[in-house]
Design a protein around this nucleic acid. Structure first.
Length: 481
DNA sequence: ATGTCC
């Protein structure tokens, strides 16, 4: 299948549609949020073919959607949203991704960049020493079987109870860092084994811990509510459920593929394997996914504790890091949304897309409730990142979702061919960005050139109205695998 | 993303 520009209709500025009539199997139209230059980029890979495939999922509501940072992934595009009807629509592990509850959190400090710039090299080395990173890397914590069960069931709460986290952090996490449907008994022994020593580790690939400062404020009311001010130093953490989540995805994709014929489901790509949400296999996957998501929230809480330790070692005990927000961008959630004017229960698959609820959302901490939910958009290593705030419009247009980053534009292989990592590391240092990484390979794969322009991506979501710009962050130290 | 092929 090939998708041409002529197959795509412009609905409004920054919103494009491939109509349901494009392919007989489509149950809903497929929609793209993008500026025209970004759309041209998106047409370079298989993202739109995958988007059209997703539109054929059993029970899909409204439209299959992609954000401007989209690129192709396993079955579903990364940067995609698919809401299926609760409770008998499809759940598909490919719509969540292999890194279950990959996500990002932002911690704010009470320091100004001008006061600590001379200590950045020292700080980045200390952060690198405190935070284990790299492929397959374990940390200090070894979970007993009972502790593993508690982590899977209670998420970030476990870290708080064990002294690896702060109680005040919990209110500042999506779903308070814990999904109640988690069932640890549905996680394989292999997955638990892989997760035994990986709590408090970032892994490799695009995962990182970064020190940034607030370069610009766009929305003073929201920035004030979020505790952000110009020149302030902040810490950004991006990681997920590590080997445990990967194993859960592997285990259940296999099972769901095997179960699919029993439910008479046919999909255009085997990587879209799915079962009804309320089937035995669907429920088992969902409860296992929730448990893996809890592991990821606990992981980001433990990493915050490690970052806090580094902070204390460098700046002294009177300096602290406060959690601004923690958000998932690879997850499925049961949520109510308005579709064609009617409220319906949905299973929202967000794969490389974050929740972006507007003002008035009950779950938000009181200080954020009148402004909306924070949305954190990490850019690439040498560019910049953004804090946005969700809107009511996102709930009308994208099932309360927004983009999750800049979006990859070069494959890892292509990036490695084009980038000289030692040279890049020096260049970044000259620009005032200290990079500490376990391998040059990782630096090359994550080079800014491998990513789309985060400014263009953020402009698109801001003009579309699904999120509002609050602040721009500039990196000064990066810890990678 | 991932003990980059059990």
């Amino acid at each position: 299948m090939k998708i041409r520009k002529g197959d795509i209709h412009k609905i409004e500025d920054y919103l494009w549609e491939i109509p349901k009539s494009f392919r007989p199997k489509m149950r809903v139209p497929a929609r793209v949020l993008a500026s025209e230059p970004l759309l041209d980029d998106i047409m370079e890979d298989r993202s739109l073919v995958q988007l059209v495939n997703v539109a054929s999922l059993p029970g899909i509501q409204g439209a299959s959607l992609v954000m401007p940072d989209v690129h192709e992934g396993y079955g579903f595009p990364i940067g995609g949203v698919a809401a299926t009807l609760y409770p008998d629509g499809a759940i598909s592990p490919g719509g969540i991704g292999y890194d279950i509850n990959c996500g990002v959190r932002l911690l704010t400090s009470n320091q100004k960049i001008t006061d600590i710039r001379h200590r950045l090299e020292e700080l980045s080395k200390e952060m690198y020493a405190q935070i284990p990173s790299g492929m397959g890397k374990g940390g200090q914590i070894r979970l007993s079987p009972q502790e593993m069960e508690d982590v899977l069931r209670t998420g970030a709460e476990w870290a708080v109870e064990k002294g690896y986290g702060k109680k005040d952090d919990l209110a500042f996490m999506e779903s308070r860092g814990r999904l109640g449907n988690a069932d640890p008994s549905l996680i394989s022994e292999m997955a638990k084994k892989r997760g035994t020593d990986q709590l408090g580790t970032i892994g490799s690939g695009n995962h990182f811990v970064e020190v940034d400062y607030v370069e610009e404020i766009y929305d003073t009311t929201a920035a004030k509510a979020f505790g952000l001010s110009k020149g302030q130093v902040v810490v950004l953490i991006h990681t997920g459920s590590r080997g445990l989540g990967h194993q859960v995805a592997t285990d259940y994709i296999r099972r769901i593929m095997a179960a699919m014929p029993h439910y008479g489901i046919e999909v255009p790509d085997r990587e879209l394997a799915c079962v009804p949400f309320n089937s035995e296999e669907g429920q088992n996957y969902f409860k296992a996914m929730c448990a893996a998501a809890n592991y990821a929230w606990c992981n980001r809480e433990v990493i915050s504790w490690e970052a806090r330790t580094a902070w204390k070692n460098i700046f002294g005990s009177d300096q602290s890091l406060k959690l601004m927000y923690d958000i998932a961008h690879n997850i499925a959630k049961v949520e109510t949304h308005r579709v064609h004017g009617e409220e319906v229960g949905t299973i929202v698959h967000r794969k490389g897309a974050t929740r972006a609820f507007g003002p008035g959302f009950e779950e938000l901490p009181e200080v954020y409730r009148s402004v909306g939910q924070p949305v954190i958009i990490p850019g690439s290593m040498g560019t910049c990142s953004y804090v946005l705030v969700g809107t009511t419009k996102s709930q009308e247009l994208t099932f309360g979702s927004c983009c999750h980053g800049a979006g990859r534009r070069l494959s890892r292989t292509a990036a490695k061919k084009q980038v000289n990592a030692p040279v890049l590391k020096e260049q970044l240092k000259e620009e005032g960005i200290f990079v500490e990484a376990g391998s040059f390979k990782g630096i090359a794969e994550e080079a800014p050139i491998a990513y789309k322009d985060v400014n263009m991506v953020v402009e698109t979501v801001a003009i579309s109205g699904i999120a509002k710009k609050v602040a721009k962050l500039r990196p000064v130290a990066v810890i990678k695998g």
